[in-house]
């Protein structure tokens, strides 16, 4: 078979891995509240897992200096002083993995103070791993000199 046939096949497979709709786990939307403690330079818990559609409340509790939380993807932010818990409530209507970051300079490692909100399963990671494996297969199956062999 011609290599281009495999190329088409791999591109098709790649598209399927990247975009195929996966069965949605039928979790009824729930209310979830997380008490997230912020201190130099981490959140605890640092990884929050929710289901798509959940109403999520994050209570931000600073335990040393003023910290904040900026949620990627949702563009929401709050700041909290020690002794003054603040809350951020939103509907987790975007699936995926989102970093949240401190948005109040809180010391040397402030730019690296991050946590993660996981809405639904981390499907993108699995798709990415799928693509990686596919890429490896493609390399092993296609002739080593492809595509130069075609052009001469």
């Amino acid at each position: 078979m011609k290599p281009w046939f495999f190329v088409a096949l791999f591109i098709l497979a790649g598209a399927v891995i990247t975009f195929a709709p996966l069965p949605v786990t039928a979790a009824a939307p729930a209310r979830r509240t997380f008490r997230v403690e912020a201190n130099q330079f981490a959140y605890a818990p640092a990884v929050l897992e929710v289901n798509p559609g959940d109403t999520v409340t994050i209570e931000l509790v600073s335990t040393d200096v003023v910290h904040g939380m900026f949620l990627d993807g949702y563009g929401l932010s709050v700041t909290a002083d020690p002794g003054q818990t603040t809350r951020m409530t939103f509907t987790a209507n975007r699936s995926g993995s989102f970093r949240f970051r401190c948005n109040v300079t809180c010391g040397a490692l402030h730019p690296f103070m991050v946590g993660k909100l996981q809405v639904g399963k981390n499907r993108w990671l699995w798709r990415a791993i799928g693509l990686t494996v596919l890429a490896t297969l493609a390399i092993l199956i296609l002739p080593p000199n492809f595509p130069k062999a075609e052009t001469g």
Partner: peptide, 19 residues
């Protein structure tokens, strides 16, 4: 109270603030 006391005395006065 929130600004000055709650960090030690707790936001609900329980003596259990973050410090």
């Amino acid at each position: 109270f929130a600004q000055n006391c709650a960090a030690c005395h707790g936001e609900t006065g329980g003596g259990n603030g973050v410090f």
